[in-house]
Simulated assay, not measured.
Amino acid sequence: MEKPISNDPLHGVTLKKILEDLVAYYGFDTLGELINIKCFNDNPSIKSSLTFLRKTEWARKKVEELYIRTLPKL
């Protein structure tokens, strides 16, 4: 019996990969304009942003939604 294929576009994609792709595509400046959170606007880094996003569900959801909208461009 075969396993069904997931329809979730985030299936198997880590938060770190999502963030790295978004930063590579937009840069922290534009990312901070698109999602106005301190970890993108005040001394941003991948590490500090991951720490914040792992603890803050509403912010992580915004990043995931942006990633899904950006996927066709990546």
Rank of each mutant, 00 (worst) to 15 (best):
A24S: 15
V63C: 04
Y25G: 11
D29M: 01
F52M: 04
T70P: 03
S45A: 03
L50S: 03
V23K: 11
L34D: 03
R69L: 11
D29K: 07
K61Y: 00
T14C: 03
Y67F: 15
L74Y: 10
D42Y: 10
L53Q: 07
V23C: 14
M1K: 09
T30E: 15
I37K: 07
I35M: 11
I18T: 13
G27F: 14
P72E: 11
R60P: 00
N43M: 07
P4K: 12
T70D: 05
S6A: 06
S48Q: 09
L19Q: 12
S6Q: 02
M1H: 03
E2V: 10
G32Q: 01
L71H: 02
D29H: 02
K62A: 13
L50I: 11
T14E: 10
H11N: 14
E65R: 12
N36F: 02
P9L: 08
N36W: 00
A59I: 00
V63T: 14
N43E: 11
E20R: 14
C39M: 11
F40C: 09
N41W: 05
L71F: 10
E57F: 06
T30D: 12
Y26G: 13
L74I: 01
G12T: 06
R54C: 03
V63W: 08
I35P: 07
L66A: 02
L53G: 10
I68H: 07
R60F: 00
T70L: 04
P9S: 03
P9Y: 09
K17T: 14
K73W: 11
D42T: 07
D8Y: 05
R60K: 15
V13T: 14
T30R: 13
M1N: 06
L53Y: 06
V13G: 08
D29C: 01
I35R: 05
Y25C: 09
P4I: 13
L66Q: 05
N41K: 15
T51N: 05
T56G: 00
D21C: 12
G27Y: 10
L22T: 12
P4H: 06
G27D: 13
P4V: 11
Y67V: 06
E57M: 03
T14G: 11
F40N: 08
N7M: 08
E64T: 01
I68E: 10
S48Y: 12
I18G: 10
K47R: 14
K16R: 15
K3C: 02
E2W: 08
T14R: 04
G12E: 08
H11W: 09
L53H: 14
E65Y: 07
L74D: 05
E2T: 11
Y25H: 15
L22G: 13
E2G: 10
